[in-house]
């Protein structure tokens, strides 16, 4: 199956120019966060919901900054461990952020933060039925991916590596398989990337986009790193669209062999010697 190379990047009905989705957590300051988001030229930012003291102004300050950016907001269900918790937080996010998009995060293992695939499928069925655009943070399992598509997902977000680990793409075979078996799905790599080159690698495989947070927010210069990832993602996508050459074991000359200087003499010499 061939992946269409020049199709637009869409989430639900929304067509996006930037293939980078950026998280809003862990920046050294709100000002650096805003400058990093602007430098990345991303159009979608992820946010969450948390308990906050009323005395501390609630989440008003942060929410005002986010609204001021005028970007698409993708609320997550980070920290949820059961289907019921995730459904409740998804609904709270829909009301608070006025969007039907949800990054569905359902953790099944605390050490690796590996998503729980069974709970993901169950929660997706309920949320998709209720009109949510569910973007599931998932492992790279092909059959889980198929079940999530059956449950109503139009976007899938397999991990590259555990959240925040910066290890890059640990299972390139599985990601390539997902891409080739689900050629029409919007596929993003979400989590685990540390370097711009790793984002480019995913894009060269034909992934539609990248969701990042730690690699940018925790860099020594988050604003510069946001720009670096943005360019790597564009470069990787262009590489994919341009059509990569197959790799070969042998060297193949790139300079034309026709008209090679001294060729007659060399060849003749070799023939005489053999």
């Amino acid at each position: 199956m061939r992946v269409a190379v020049h199709r637009p990047f869409t989430i639900g009905e929304v067509e996006l120019k930037s293939r980078l989705l950026l998280g809003t957590a862990q920046y050294p300051s709100p000002d650096v966060m805003v400058r990093a988001i602007e430098a990345s030229r991303c159009e979608v930012i992820t946010v969450s919901l948390r308990r906050q003291n009323a005395a501390g102004g609630g989440g008003e300050g942060f929410w005002d900054i986010i609204r001021g950016l005028g970007l698409h907001v993708l609320p997550n269900t980070a920290g949820c461990r059961t289907v019921q918790e995730a459904i409740t937080v998804a609904n709270m996010g829909r009301e608070l952020f006025d969007t039907s998009w949800v990054k569905l995060e359902l953790i099944g293992d605390d050490y690796t933060l590996q998503p729980d695939p069974i709970a993901l499928i169950e929660a997706t069925k309920v949320l998709a039925e209720d009109g949510f655009e569910v973007l599931p943070y998932m492992t790279e399992d092909l059959v889980v991916a198929r079940r999530l598509v059956d449950a109503g997902c139009r976007v899938l977000m397999p991990w590259g590596a555990p959240i925040g680990s910066g290890q890059g793409i640990l299972n390139p075979y599985a990601l390539r398989t997902l891409r080739s078996r689900l050629p029409d799905m919007t596929l993003l790599v979400d989590a685990g990337l540390g370097r711009p080159s790793q984002a480019a690698e995913a894009m060269e495989m034909g992934f539609d986009g990248i969701l990042l947070n730690s690699a940018v927010a925790l860099a020594q210069d988050p604003v510069l790193m946001a720009k670096a990832f943005s360019r790597a993602i564009e470069a990787g996508r262009q590489g994919f669209e341009a059509g990569l050459i197959p790799s070969r074991e042998m060297g193949v000359p790139s300079t034309p062999t026709l008209g090679t200087p001294f060729w007659q003499q060399q060849a003749a010499g070799k023939e005489e010697g053999s």
Binding site: S48, G59, F97, G164
Partner: peptide, 10 residues
């Protein structure tokens, strides 16, 4: 009762 507010997230 849970009362949740907008917060930074990844």
């Amino acid at each position: 009762i849970e009362i949740l507010a907008p917060m930074q997230g990844g």
